[in-house]
């Protein structure tokens, strides 16, 4: 950020002499301060998990959900400015609905990610708006592509992932995700990993704050795992909260793994 103060970073849609859009970069800074959010793409579905930081014990436990339902088969987890995330989510819902109206079929996950990328990008083009302070992880399951996991950044760029992480603890989370044999695990296995990774990332970055773990998945209602040729299940999935018992079990295992991990070394991370 050597060019701070040169004036090229004061307005959106302005290039600096070396070709950067500072306002977009600053928007990603807002994301980097948000609670960690991850997505795991499996052979039979996708798991989303977020670290919901709890600012006050007066908040109603379990309320103020951070993973949104976009369509029956698509979930969206955000990190960054929460009001921006709500706006972004509401646009995603409109896109999904308009697709349904026009084509009489649910929207493929890749197409939704594509459209949301376009929407985010439009907010980098004009000095009259600011970019979204949000990185969104879009998870879904469709007929053609099977399980899909996409991450859309404030610049509008969007990539497909096997394991995606954003927010404050993304580095730690990414390191853990890379150890998993993705996508060759099941959603049920991934739930445990997701809980562990969120706990790990939390311990690494926001140890002093309280948090709630929020988890959803997208999977096919009827098909069991490894039904089709390559072991990847295809068909329209259903996005829903992970059943409470499974979350409780996963959290228990996560906490146990934290105790074990703590013996090895004291990790101190600077930003």
């Amino acid at each position: 950020m050597t060019s701070i103060g040169t004036g090229y970073d004061l307005s959106n849609s302005v290039f600096s002499p070396d070709g950067r859009n500072f306002q977009v970069e600053y928007a990603t800074k807002a994301v980097e301060n948000g609670g960690t959010a991850i997505g795991i793409r499996c052979k039979d579905g996708v798991v989303l998990a977020v670290e919901k930081l709890i600012g006050s014990k007066l908040l109603v436990p379990g309320s103020n959900k951070r993973i949104a339902m976009v369509d029956r088969h698509v979930g969206l987890a955000c990190s960054g400015l929460i009001p921006d995330a709500r706006h972004f989510t509401s646009r995603a819902r409109s896109e999904a609905a308009s697709w349904r109206k026009f084509y009489h079929t649910p929207i493929p996950v890749s197409s939704l990610a594509d459209r949301m990328g376009g929407y985010a990008q439009a907010y980098t083009l004009y000095s009259s708006v600011r970019p979204f302070g949000v990185t969104a992880i879009i998870a879904g399951m469709d007929e053609e592509g099977g399980p899909g996991l996409w991450m859309v950044e404030p610049s509008g760029v969007g990539w497909g992932y096997f394991g995606a992480a954003t927010g404050r603890g993304r580095q730690a989370a990414k390191a853990e995700l890379e150890k998993l044999p993705l996508p060759n695990i099941t959603v049920k296995e991934a739930v445990k990993h997701a809980a562990r990774i969120i706990y790990f990332a939390h311990d690494d970055n926001s140890k002093d704050k309280d948090f709630e773990l929020e988890m959803t998945w997208v999977r096919h209602e009827k098909l069991a795992t490894a039904e089709s040729g390559e072991g990847i299940v295809k068909g329209w999935g259903k996005h829903e909260e992970v059943p409470k018992e499974l979350v409780a079990e996963a959290e228990k295992l996560a906490k146990e793994s934290m105790v074990e991990g703590g013996d090895d070394e004291e990790m101190e991370v600077e930003e």
């Binding site: 306002q23 807002a30 301060n33």
Partner: peptide
């Protein structure tokens, strides 16, 4: 500072003053 004139400008830290 230069970043608090309007609500469409992020500060380098990603804040909206």
């Amino acid at each position: 500072n230069n970043y608090d004139n309007d609500s469409v400008t992020f500060s380098p830290q990603g804040r909206i003053f």
